[in-house]
Design a protein around this nucleic acid. Structure first.
Lengths: 207, 207
DNA sequence: CAATATGCGTACCGATCGGTAACATTGTCA
DNA sequence: TGACAATGTTACCGATCGGTACGCATATTG
């Protein structure tokens, strides 16, 4: 909803599984490369080569590499919320703690995977300290949303100080993102994520 | 102690305050620029220009930009431990909790400063996913040391599960590093750092 | 069949990247 | 004075960076 279509959608129902347009291939390829190696480390030439398209196709669909990076993060943001809310829904809206813990358990185990690279949005903020960068803006907005959502969940759990618990949980989550890519041999500090969250939540429900 | 001197030290007591060698100026300038903007974002030309030296001087003192980045992180690592252990000493070796909390309170407030940029070592790991990069190696070694040290402190506090508490604290700390540079307008989630740590420590001392 | 529009590719741009060769200059100490 | 070590000066290298001018192909549409 936040983004105007960069190319026309293929009319649905006409051609059976139309070949993916160049812009889509670029978007998907950029997503993989940007996430795995970082945005600065990936050149536009590598993107178009791996996507099987050419450079002008990239610049017809995206005004600049920076905007392509921002588009990558918008996709990333959308997928994050989709999975996050799905877990909450799955546990039932009346049981936010179970839904959040499901997310945390999953994150804790993913963070121990061999080539885990953390959160693409957090990583981008590290790569681009300047607030004016379009990709960083997406990252900042996402994190503000996440912060609010965590406080909301803490309130739904009945925490005595929901904002404080939300922020505490956010520190744990971001810590898991970072340490997950620092201790990739499995069994890094992220293994403590769920247990630490349980203890913090408990401490906020006793008041 | 882990690094052979790249240039001879000036003989102490001969010349009164000898002019800083080119290698030192490069090291200091690189440190500031790398930390503030990230390593990939800073070119060697910018470093030598701002340091007031020339490019050959850089490459006479350091074999490559990557090794200069590694040297920057070794300095960073040394300063980190110096300040960290100083706080512990200041609180008394018989009171590790007070020393750690002093560190956490300080970190929590620093993380709210306008242009806070987190931990240079963590940031570098985000910038360089490849384990073979010399700068990343320094980062990984540092984080392993930090993890062990935190578990050690947890044990000294009498925690029931020192490794678990140590890892939990590490998640909070790394979370403060990252969120500190995401919510630079002060009052980010890092404000919860100390309080969350207190609660986690308490929960590990009740067993 | 033409006309038009859309999508894509070839080839190229100037700028900057990390890094180096060869030589001049300086200051220090014997 | 002479030798040496450290730095500066200048000019350069090939590679890669992000970005673009321009023309070719295909397909729909009158």
């Amino acid at each position: 909803m936040a983004q105007k279509p960069l190319t026309d959608q293929p009319v649905p129902g006409t051609a059976p599984a139309a070949a993916p347009r160049a812009a889509d291939k670029i978007r998907r390829t950029a997503r993989e490369l940007f996430y795995a190696a970082g945005i600065r480390a990936v050149g536009v030439d590598e993107i178009v080569t791996k996507a099987g398209v050419t450079k002008p196709s990239l610049y017809r669909a995206f005004p600049s590499k920076d905007e392509l990076a921002a588009a990558y993060l918008r996709d990333y943001d959308a997928e994050f919320w989709q999975r996050f809310e799905a877990r909450l829904d799955n546990a039932g809206r009346d049981n936010p703690r179970a839904g959040l813990m499901d997310f945390l358990h999953n994150l804790g185990s993913r963070a121990g995977a061999p080539h885990y690279r953390g959160c693409g949005l957090s990583n981008t903020a590290v790569e681009y300290p300047d607030d004016s960068h379009p990709a960083r803006k997406v990252s900042e907005e996402h994190k503000q949303k996440l912060r609010l959502r965590l406080a909301e969940l803490a309130a739904d759990m009945g925490a005595d100080d929901p904002k404080l618990l939300g922020d505490s949980l956010m520190l744990l989550i971001e810590g898991a993102f970072v340490t997950g890519q620092l201790f990739h041999a499995g069994g890094g500090p992220a293994r403590a994520l769920a247990e630490a969250a349980e203890r913090l939540i408990d401490s906020h429900l006793k008041g």
